[in-house]
């Protein structure tokens, strides 16, 4: 197992009543696996992802359980250890391509930051890797894009840049949190295909989070359905689609527009 999450509980204490947003969640990810989490918004998908990435807020919340990754408990290890894993072995791409890039830094600088922090590569080696990553995410003229600022790129291109920044260090796990939600339908399909390609190419495990069951169905081997912080159902993608056990999952499947043919 690449990652094993056991009994994860996340509870917010910043309001008058404590609010539990993730209840007793168990999750295991194998090497090179593509696994999906679906659920309506507010169901705790992002919180789960942030917990794995070690990005939960430091204040006003309580977390319990464990997240084992390479014999380290990500939930309880010290920050120094966490920083050595973050960004190198586990990377993440966020939902909003418009705010995920630092507006005052060049694209190349941002893609390279991870290498600057985690490796001793020289400037030219970093440049090579960054340009290769930009080419891997199918951006045309990567050398030119390397020298551009975020505001010069469209949303779809920015999201590709974010993916490039996330794969430049050859991570073992890539978390993609609703990365297609802010994009046009045609670009969504391209990005999803790109993830599949990266998964095959580098054998990177991908945790694909979405509220769109049809997208998840297109690329994931296994699906987890979440609702109100609980895991409702879990299983191989085709089994979930064809023989869903839970009423909630059936409703989600029924909500997929009919004209869309699901390719498993």
């Amino acid at each position: 197992m690449l990652l094993e999450m056991k009994h994860l509980n996340i509870e917010f204490h910043n309001r008058t009543i404590p609010e539990t947003v993730v209840h007793d969640l168990n999750l295991a990810i194998k090497e090179g696996e593509m696994i999906g989490i679906v659920g309506e918004s507010g169901s705790g998908k992002t919180m789960t992802a942030l917990a794995i990435a070690g990005l939960l807020p430091r204040h006003g919340m309580q977390k319990s359980g464990e997240i084992q990754f390479q014999n380290t408990d990500l939930l309880h290890c010290d920050r120094k250890k966490l920083r050595s894993i973050q960004g190198k072995d586990i990377t993440m791409v966020f939902q909003e391509p418009m705010t995920s890039l630092n507006p005052v830094k060049k694209i190349g600088w941002q893609v390279e930051e991870c290498l600057r922090v985690h490796t001793d590569l020289t400037k030219s080696e970093r440049y090579q890797k960054a340009v290769t990553a930009l080419a891997d995410v199918e951006l045309k003229e990567p050398e030119k894009i390397y020298h551009m600022y975020p505001h010069q790129l469209s949303g779809g291109m920015r999201q590709r840049v974010m993916i490039a920044a996330a794969i430049v260090s050859n991570p073992q796990l890539l978390i993609a949190d609703e990365i297609t939600t802010a994009l046009d339908v045609t670009i969504q399909a391209q990005i999803v295909k790109l993830l599949k390609k990266i998964n095959k190419l580098q054998n990177t495990a991908i945790l694909f989070i979405s509220h769109d069951l049809s997208l998840v169905g297109r690329i994931c081997d296994r699906v987890i359905v979440m609702k109100d912080g609980y895991m409702v159902e879990e299983g191989p993608t085709d089994q979930i689609y064809l023989h869903a056990k839970e009423e909630y999952t059936k409703k989600l499947i029924a909500a997929i527009p009919k004209c869309e043919k699901i390719q498993l």
Partner: peptide, 17 residues
């Protein structure tokens, strides 16, 4: 709370950097 700062935190950049 901006995503690009979370991104920097995620890739393990030192807080002072």
């Amino acid at each position: 709370e901006m995503d690009y700062i979370r991104q920097a935190e995620l890739i393990g950049v030192h807080p002072f950097r």
